[in-house]
């Protein structure tokens, strides 16, 4: 268990990165919808992922409403690949 990436080994952060691995970008509201997280918690977790270089966050306005878009980075994608690899090893050891 020690081997697993601690940043990704958390329910909401893992959900965010796993979802983003399959899309080019997603709106904050869509992430809220699919993760069923609270606004505050989701904000905190995406900021942590951004600080680690796993996500890019773009803030803009659309039709006078603030729009936050998230995108996975190459580092984020590599980290998820490594995490899945480590997970497989741990599952094989069990």
């Amino acid at each position: 268990m020690n081997k697993l990436n601690k940043l990704l080994h958390q329910e909401l952060r893992l959900a965010i990165v796993s979802y983003l691995a399959g899309v080019e970008w997603v709106n904050f509201n869509k992430l809220l919808d699919i993760t069923e997280a609270t606004k505050g918690n989701l904000s905190v977790q995406i900021k942590k992922l951004e600080a680690a270089g796993y996500l890019e966050i773009k803030k803009s306005f659309k039709d006078n409403y603030p729009l936050t878009q998230c995108k996975i980075t190459d580092d984020g994608r590599n980290a998820l690949d490594e995490y899945v690899k480590d997970l497989k090893q741990l599952l094989n050891m069990k």
Binding site: E11, L14, A15, S18, G22
Partner: peptide
């Protein structure tokens, strides 16, 4: 978090992203 739970989250989110069409 249990590792089996991690696997479930990854699977569920990957399936969600496929619906994004």
């Amino acid at each position: 978090m249990e590792i089996t739970e991690s696997v479930k989250i990854i699977e569920r989110m990957m399936n969600e992203s496929k619906k994004t069409l």
